[in-house]
Simulated assay, not measured.
Amino acid sequence: MISSVLTLRRQSETSFSKESGQYDLVVGAKGSPLQLVLSSIYQLDIPTGNIPYSRYLALKKDRRISMAIPVGLGDNYHGFRIIGTEPSLFDLTDRGDINKKLFSFREGRSFQQDLEAVIGADVARQSGLKIGDSFVGTHGLVSTAGSSQHTDFPYRVVGILNSSGMSTDRGIYVSLSSVWRIHEKEAEIHAKLAGIDPVKGLSENREVTAVLLRLKAVGMRLWMTQEIQKRTESMAAIPVNELHRLFVRILEPVQNALLGIACLVVLVSALTIVATFYQAAERRRADLAIMRALGAHRREILALVLTEALILTVLGIGFGMLLGHGGLYAANQSLRNLWGVSIHPYELDRSELYSLSIIAVGGIIAGLLPAILAYRREPTDDLSKS
């Protein structure tokens, strides 16, 4: 339990932080900032709404912004979200290494025209889609029975991304104009009902779900957040701050509770070792007395019992690590599908090594009591009783 809890906490924080650190701000409709971040970056929540496409164009022209990436949501394919965006998304470099692109293609290329799609590594693996294959999207962000399919507008796969360990592995990327084009019929109906010229209504009322921003100076995050909040109908959220609140308020208390349970399990195990070795020492009193009579020193008897405790503890730690990390390996794909968390289940860090070292010391201490009792016994008393 300790191995799995510590590994899951470390890897989840690393995975979420890696992706949230790629963007300085997320701009979207007013609502919950955390919901905006989770839906726009991690594909884990429902969007707070839409904002005008003109808001994206204004942000793109802002001299304080180095890159603006639009995000348009609304459809899915077998539960994988179809994301309208621009090809510039694939030009992003990793914040940790500016010489490395954040996304790379395993096969094919970026989309260049409407109804072309680039799919993530998980989408390709689970759906079986390949370069040149066609598929149709389903209305809505999740796959539900009875949802309408856009059969008149099939997408064609032109690119497959390498696995990045981020939410992009579970995304299907198309042009924004593809998303708008597919929903033209529905938009035309609403425009006619509202008494608006359909063609004019479509061009004036285009929207995006969110805009991902990189700033020229990171120190402007708070300033721009307040400015957007006060001067526009939109909202800006700082991904790093929202993820920190998520961990502090929700995930960390749960993980600490699990860690506390794991510590109680270790304590019970230590007490079990004490009882087990004490009973074993009682059953072998005659054997130990014979060893003493044959010339074994008290220190040798003490070392024998302590060695047994150490062997049992080391075996327990090894078996526990195998179960903990092996369980995370088996659950890795489920975690990626549910939360977008990609973990490396066999990586060790200092906190886990320290914890396992404390457990090893605890096991030795647990074997100390029966070892001391065996050390203090006189061989003549045990032989006479036997």
Rank of each mutant, 00 (worst) to 15 (best):
K385P: 00
G171Q: 10
W223V: 11
S3L: 04
I290L: 10
L373T: 13
K200A: 14
V274I: 15
T14F: 04
S12K: 03
L193C: 02
H78T: 04
L115E: 10
G362N: 05
H78K: 15
E188Y: 04
G201R: 00
V248F: 00
P33F: 09
S104R: 09
N50D: 14
S20P: 11
G318V: 12
T232N: 02
G108T: 12
I119R: 03
I98G: 06
S147N: 13
N337R: 11
R350G: 14
A366F: 01
P154K: 02
L73C: 04
Y155F: 14
A286W: 05
N241D: 12
V361T: 15
I46C: 00
P52K: 05
A68N: 07
T7V: 07
N162T: 08
S178T: 15
R292C: 02
E242S: 04
R214V: 11
P253R: 08
S32P: 13
L383G: 02
E186I: 10
F319S: 11
L302I: 09
K60V: 04
A360E: 08
Y155R: 02
R125W: 01
L258Y: 03
E282R: 08
S147C: 03
H325K: 13
A58D: 12
N256Q: 14
Q255M: 12
R221P: 12
L57N: 02
A217M: 06
V208D: 01
I131W: 03
T380N: 08
K216I: 11
A374T: 07
S127T: 15
S164H: 05
L368Q: 01
L264D: 11
K101Q: 14
R221V: 10
